[in-house]
Amino acid sequence: MNVLTIEHLSKSFGSLSVLKDISLKVSKGEIVAVIGPSGSGKSTLLRCATMLETMDTGSLSYCGEYVCQHDASLNKSVYASQQKLRDLRRMFGLVFQNFNLFPHYTVLKNITDAPICVQKRDKQAVIEEARNLLREIGLADKENAYPYQLSGGQQQRVSIARALINKPEMVFFDEPTSALDPELTNEILKTIRKLASLRITMMIVTHEIEFARNVADRVIFMAGGVIVEEGKPDDVILHPQNPRTQTFLANLKK
């Protein structure tokens, strides 16, 4: 079954066409890494998928339920009702490059506030689950800390827990290690590997090519708003077919 289905997605900012007719499916348990040069539209793709941007044309669905559907007569995407979109948001979590934790909430509240106040889940159960997650990511003793008291790597782990608390069908990561010092990168990659071993469906934008090769089931190379090449990690990363992929990977090695 496909968790995420994107069909013919296009997106422009003014006259700048950023995503051009992107189609993409992610099946349950699959781990997809997205690589590509800066400005190629990777973040915009994730932001469209997580409803932070509205797409111009094309369709988007989670587990067969439509977030938006292309309307041929209007030639644009028509979004579902606000209520429906609110329900569909539970289907995914998003981990930002800059964590975006809420500075005035403790670690525990950062993770539990939305499930309790937005999704109206049972408070005790949510807190219980949050504590389990914190234990999993090695931050059990930090539940009452505020984000400023944590290292970048710890903050990012909290934001991963926040993205997981509603048991989403899928988690998106937008360059989760890019804001971190190199020595903190590994702890995040380790956490993501752990999720991968649990077969949590993930789509990860990353510049960590080795990590992508090890952890992903499929690698997508984007450039200029299109998917240039995709396939098994070893094929795309070790034996790229497209000249743009070859140039990009060659430049990374320098």
Binding site: M51, N98, N100, F102, C117, V118
Partner: peptide, 17 residues
């Protein structure tokens, strides 16, 4: 920072919340 709004949006908070 705009990221605060975005994080809240993805977590499902309404505009008012």
């Amino acid at each position: 920072p705009i990221g605060q709004y975005e994080a809240a949006h993805v977590l499902g908070y309404t505009k008012c919340q």
